[in-house]
Nucleic acid binder design. Structure first.
Lengths: 215, 215
DNA sequence: TCTATAATCTAATCGCAATTTGATTGACTT
DNA sequence: AAGTCAATCAAATTGCGATTAGATTATAGA
């Protein structure tokens, strides 16, 4: 391979996490390539060796965050637990993800608009770039819908199975995701509750909201 | 007073709503003064006649949105309804506000980070400006905490009154607000449900999550 | 009608941020 | 020891966006 000085063993992964963190602090537009570079002791120019441009960098951060979470949810979905147990596991998993890496969690939520606005129809010349970007972005949003469907389907299944009350699954699911996402905004490591504890509260709350019977 | 051509009867208020709308679409950093100006058929320069600068404009938008919502909540709080009824009313009121003016609602949520980052310690010379800004910003955040406390106190009171289960009021309140705020992200006028209908689902969901007994 | 001033505009400034270009610098291979 | 490629950097480019300066226009009131 090649270089990688002891003090600058920075790879694509490192940059992604660093970017997620800065993004969390400032938001996409307010974050400069220099900010991100500084986080890993590089210059802005160096980032272009790892990512085509700022938009691709953002997209990569979002992709990683989403994939990580989806992986965990799929394991739960394909288990043979009751719907209530599954949903509880999913909620816990999602909340823990968000609290465990607030940066990614928040980016997930707040930078999507930036992704939408991102250059594509823009003036930028290189057609190949924008074409690839458009494709990846589209795939990202599809994954995002899939992510949401994992929750919604479980709610729906629970209703069908009589475990949950008759509710508007689509709306309740979004309420749920909104609540979880918001955790990324206020949660602070070292606060009154740990991420797992917050997750427990969420699980309890949502199951109480949905369950047909109360024990 | 003065001028105000028929076709350009734009006042401070108009600019605020326009700004909220553009902000909702693009986010603070991605929104240019020109964008906002265009929305009301003015040039960017003209905006400076009404607002000191971009930061003050954002702050003003947020202030208006918050005050509007708080006003409605206070009426409910000082009524003599049961805690459950009060909370239901507050939830409905908040959600309807958000769906009724997605722009303000979303700005409320998403641009707060921009407000935090906003120049204050900056290089900008004018001490008077920054001092006033710092003060107003501080007051804004205090109002914001107050807003949250209106919900939290009601939950707390409900628990004390035995109407609600024993839950972590602080966390549940934030979960609730997160769910409501998120509505501003996905809600679209003309969708399957009206704002009032979404609000109803929310009320039902949260009361189910909190109530001690189920009817 | 004349005057003061609100509300606008056009035309600069000024600085910053993304991105490009053209070297370097090591490390790994041979 | 030479060659090659990955990983960096410094410096230049470019364009855009906030903000300012200096008119201009329209109204309300004297």
């Amino acid at each position: 391979m090649a270089r990688k000085p002891a003090d600058q063993s920075v790879d694509r992964e490192d940059i992604l996490w660093a970017a997620a963190e800065v993004l969390h602090r400032n938001g996409y537009e307010a974050t400069t390539m220099k900010d991100i570079a500084a986080q890993v002791n590089l210059t802005a120019a160096s980032l272009y060796h790892h990512f085509k441009n700022k938009d691709f960098l953002l997209l990569s951060v979002l992709e990683v965050g989403l994939d990580l979470t989806i992986d965990k949810l799929e394991v739960i979905e394909s288990s043979d637990l009751t719907c209530a147990e599954k949903l509880g596991g999913m909620i816990r998993s999602h909340v823990v993800s968000v609290t465990g890496n607030v940066a990614v969690g928040a980016a997930m939520v707040f930078e999507i608009r930036a992704l939408l606005n991102a250059n594509v129809g823009g003036k930028n010349g290189d057609r190949a770039f924008t074409a690839e970007f458009a494709t990846r972005r589209k795939r990202f949003f599809a994954r995002r819908d899939y992510f949401e469907s994992l929750f919604r389907n479980t709610v729906q299944a629970g209703i069908a199975a009589g475990e949950f009350r008759q509710v508007d699954a689509a709306i309740v699911t979004r309420a749920m995701l909104g609540a979880h996402n918001w955790v990324g905004v206020w949660f602070r490591e070292g606060g009154r509750l740990s991420g797992a504890e917050v997750a427990d509260v969420m699980v309890d709350t949502w199951l109480a909201a949905l369950r047909t019977h109360r024990e």
